[in-house]
Amino acid sequence: MGGRTALVTGGTSGIGRAIVEHLSGAGMQLAFTGRDVGRGTEVAAATGATFLQADATDRGRCDESIDEALAALGGRLDLFVSNAGLVFAAPLEETPEAVYRELLEVNLTAAFRYSRACLRVMRAQGRGSIVHIVSDAAIRGIHHIPVYTISKTGLLAMSEVLAAEAAPHGVRVNAVCPGATVPGVQSTIAGYDHHAEDASTWGPAPSGRHGSGTDIAEAVLWLASGAAEHVSGATLRIDGAASAAMRAIARA
């Protein structure tokens, strides 16, 4: 993968940070977005990747970040990883409209808008790979986090539809669905600090442990590689069999 280029959204923490570290370690040239300048600068210094401050709710800034990423990467984009996401834990009955809208905006619409723009670039190149970091929630549904589940379920459909559309242009699109991962989704809606994901409330997978960022990053690297040349429209669950069969033990 040496010399290949990638853009990763939400690369300053959690799974996104692990992806930035792992892909940089594999010799790829990276740009990544995130909200937090302090964390972004730190990840950039540690990996040599280019940090682009962008909040996924700010459409104008997201659009700029794509142009800036292309400039930083020499005008070529081999891989786009849509990773930025928010979680919110409350029944729908108690979910404010603004929260519902913001989760759809960040987890679904921002992913759509970035993907649409990156597909345009990759079509012109005649090749490229897009990986959406989705969630187990998109496959089985997790009712403790219903808005998250709804947004991620839409995202998985989006990934599949885009794969069908992109395939004739040499562009592959795949979805990775992590189960409970430490550190996982750290971001929640402003004003709702207590809703950030807390891994201690999740039991381990049947494999006996939680997932790690590296588990996910390895899959992203493989999906981006030539070894996965005929893999498109795929959904890859990485959850230690957590969602494989129904278990009586639910989230605490």
Binding site: L104, F112, A138, G141, T149, T153, G154, L156, A157, V161
Partner: peptide, 8 residues
């Protein structure tokens, strides 16, 4: 996409 989200 929207109908899949509605189903969810």
């Amino acid at each position: 996409v929207s109908k899949r989200a509605l189903l969810s």
